[in-house]
Nucleic acid binder design. Structure first.
Lengths: 147, 147
DNA sequence: TTTGTTGCAAAACGTTTGCAGCCTC
DNA sequence: GAGGCTGCAAACGTTTTGCAACAAA
């Protein structure tokens, strides 16, 4: 949940994870980490795949495979805003997020609220080691209310 | 987001919704509403389908169809804890929930926290009409930490 | 050289849809 | 009786898996 970490430290975290698990440091894996960490916001696997075509070509299979690793080592967060597809977002560089989700059109808007953040942070967990949290507030957005 | 509502009032809400939308009041639809509202917790579509075999047989298609209606009229909440499948829960009878989700084994545990609830309730939204909220705290549970 | 990785195609999975027969209204 | 509803089977979109060629260690 920390902030203020350089990209070198992020890479190091991933490298450590790969070493510990006896997995290989392939260029595809680092290309994906690089993409996620140099772009703000959340992306579908398909979007990441398309974006990577321009720089270092990676198959969709490898995108999914690598995303699962990055989630496993807490470098990436998976969002399941709706039933359809997952979105992926870097876990560092931003404080954990809260989101408005419109039930009608599916629009998503991130926001931060100090009060909410503090009250969640203060919560004590016995038998549970929290890594991150996600708050979704569902409702109806301006556009849909007008209809 | 209210509490203290009788099951008759829930049924009435559904009936009103069906009338307004010019949709029919079939026994299948009420069997599903009844099941969801008389069982605490969250269930997958498959679980609801299996459970209904014992009382009023309903196809999986109708289970999905009806759940989507119940979500549309805010009587049911859909959870997307993980990528796999959705879980469904009655929207009344309980205050909106917060959940621990274990990243390793997928175990989910509901909890309530007054402080958190208050701070979310106090949040003011311009251009957005909130209907409910869901907080997921991800981490590692006791069992997985031991391994 | 060994063993993990890639990328393709095919499978798997939960969910939705098309349609014929059925049931509310 | 008209039109919405059910349930089956088939389709759908996202994600995973099997496998042969390949590359990191």
């Amino acid at each position: 949940m920390a902030d203020k970490i350089s990209y070198e430290q992020i890479e190091e975290k991933f490298t450590n994870y790969l070493c510990k698990k006896k997995q290989r440091k392939t260029p595809e894996r680092y290309a994906l980490l690089d993409y996620i960490y140099n772009n703000e916001g959340y992306f579908s696997a398909e979007q990441i795949h398309a974006a990577l075509q321009e720089t270092y070509r990676v198959s969709l299979t490898t995108v999914y495979n690598t995303l699962n690793m990055l989630i496993d080592c807490n470098l990436v967060i998976r969002h399941n805003f709706d039933k359809q597809k997952a979105f992926f977002e870097r876990a560092f560089y931003e404080t954990p997020h809260s989101y408005f989700v419109c039930c009608k059109c599916g629009a998503v808007k991130a926001f931060t609220d100090k009060q909410i953040r503090m009250s969640i942070k203060q919560k004590n967990f016995t038998n549970f080691k929290p890594s991150h949290w996600l708050l979704y507030i569902y409702g109806e957005c301006k556009k849909c209310k007008k209809k």
